[in-house]
Design a protein around this nucleic acid. Structure first.
Lengths: 160, 160
DNA sequence: CTTTAATTGACAACATACTGTCAATTCGAC
DNA sequence: GTCGAATTGACAGTATGTTGTCAATTAAAG
């Protein structure tokens, strides 16, 4: 009856998949001392070509500085990250992985690859990519100021 | 490279769309005294053919009893909901909308329809539905015990 | 150089949702 | 009817993320 109906159904399914993904991610890396949120922080650091400060990581992840600050503080206390002086900014220290942090991230990635392959084994890559583009179009419509590949610090167009 | 890559990209996009939808929903219904979470609770109550208890609402929404309990308590205090005796269960009172709750929900729905239509105006309904099915397939893969129409109170295939 | 604006980290408070635990209640097996 | 399992609401604690506010620092304007 309304054009709103398919969109509404997709929105509700997005909420449910989000929750299912987070809990599945927590189960996947929980035994490594990680959570989904901590894993994402490590990913942002690993992906960046150079060391970043907290505010920079937050921008790359699409979160607030405060959320990242709390995670970083806890991960420093747990020995996964360390803070180093920033030659360009006395206040904004650089966030670096410790040896334990790198090991945990490598272990998480080793688990993630087969997990993701199993998750998509029954779905053609073309359909997966088509779904991703639909979600991207919706998100861009919601916040037009965002670029098309947020979370990606440098490769703005092609995350190749 | 790997079959994991398109799935991983879709997962990250799901996280971002989820956040964008929640903040957009909060902005849409904030002036009605609602939030995205409260709106969803009202929707679960409005959608059900009969009055539900807290645990039942939680199952329909895919949340925990505790999360719904807190929301319901606050919404009762705010006059949006009220609790009524359950003839079939002394402990599990039924959650009902007050007049104010029904008015707020109606106002939210009146806003949601044109908002959703605008959100999907550039996307063919077939693509939207295809994306929804991909997300559904992923979620079912993550939690095989879930039925295919969560949020539907009666179409349960009796996972008892 | 001085003033102003923007960025950054920190603290507080709040919103949402989770797990764990408990007693009360209902339901099923016997 | 009785007993044990399951359900339900409640409480406590934790995790994640938000907004608001502040001082320190950096960058820009004059």
């Amino acid at each position: 009856m309304s054009r709103a109906e398919p969109i509404t159904a997709l929105i509700l399914e997005t909420f449910r998949l989000n929750g299912a993904l987070l809990s599945a991610g927590d189960r996947l890396v929980g035994h490594l001392g990680l959570t989904s949120a901590r894993w994402q922080v490590l990913g942002a650091i690993a992906y960046a070509p150079q060391a970043l400060a907290i505010a920079h990581i937050a921008r790359n992840m699409g979160l607030t500085r405060q959320a990242v600050r709390r995670l970083v503080n806890e991960m420093v206390a747990d020995g996964l990250l360390r803070l180093a002086a920033n030659p360009h900014h006395r206040r904004a220290r650089l966030v670096l992985m410790t040896k334990a942090g790198r090991a945990a991230y490598a272990a998480a990635m080793a688990l993630q690859t087969p997990w993701a392959e199993a998750l998509g084994q029954d779905l053609p890559p073309a359909e997966i990519d088509a779904a991703r583009r639909v979600l991207l179009a919706m998100r861009v419509h919601l916040s037009p100021d965002n670029d098309t590949t947020p979370g990606d610090p440098d490769a703005l167009d092609e995350h190749a």
